[in-house]
Amino acid sequence: MTTRIDNKFAQLKTEGRAAFVSYIMSGDPDMDTSLAILKGLPSAGADIIELGMCFTDPMADGVAIQLAAQRALKSGQTLPKTLEMVQEFRKDDADTPLILMGYYNPIYIFGVDRFLAAAKAAGVDGLIVVDLPPEEDDELCIPANKVGMNFIRLATPTTDEARLPAVLSNTSGFVYYVSITGITGAASANQKNVEDAVARLKRFTDLPIAVGFGINTPEQVRDIGSVADASVVGSAIVRQIENNLDEAGRPKPGLVDAVLNFTKTLSQGVR
């Protein structure tokens, strides 16, 4: 089954460039603002969008995304509202792949089958669920594959070759290589290490390799894009939202443009 994600990577291959993947947290700082940013991302150069699903206990995230989740929760964001946002987004955009990223509990409580049906209907293409390693594939990964939803797995510097086949089985769309041992928004990876890691992954899979964690500048987007199939930026974009809030945490005028302009600058790295 070909998905929007497969098509996007095939198209970029003919263009001869890497994908730029941008992350924002749904509902940060509120649903309307967040939807406005979401709708603007494709023209700001986002080839693929990761939309965060907020959770009270984001144990793999650094401060920037933790705060984004707290802002979203405070504004009343929920999983059904995130799906509503995707539905709205799909009204104007039929091509940009959209991936939901987050933690398992809100999905588990919503109900796995019900969630997959609703996400599919809303126009979600893939899922990244941080706390579901291959050992827990029965929970969501296999049901997702059954309905034709890409389940995108994280590979990390600690994923050794003995483990790689397990990590790559049941994964589709692309492989997300976490370039550092650490949390989002922390240290940046060494370019040579990333290059080696991507080469190692390529020996085990034909899937595109996206690299994320610690990518903050157009130069880093470019460097990573020169050795991988996609560069992912999350925390740096989310920090732009944080920097454009007033003291009461409300969006200042111009927030959406500021975030999209910043994203556009980043996206030039792969162009």
Binding site: L132, P133, T156, T158, T159, D160, G182
Partner: peptide, 20 residues
């Protein structure tokens, strides 16, 4: 062997931690 007591328990951690 999967760390389950009935449906409870398990190993719901990020991939970085899984090898550890």
């Amino acid at each position: 062997e999967r760390g389950l007591f009935g449906i409870f328990g398990g190993r719901f951690v990020a991939e970085t931690l899984m090898p550890l």
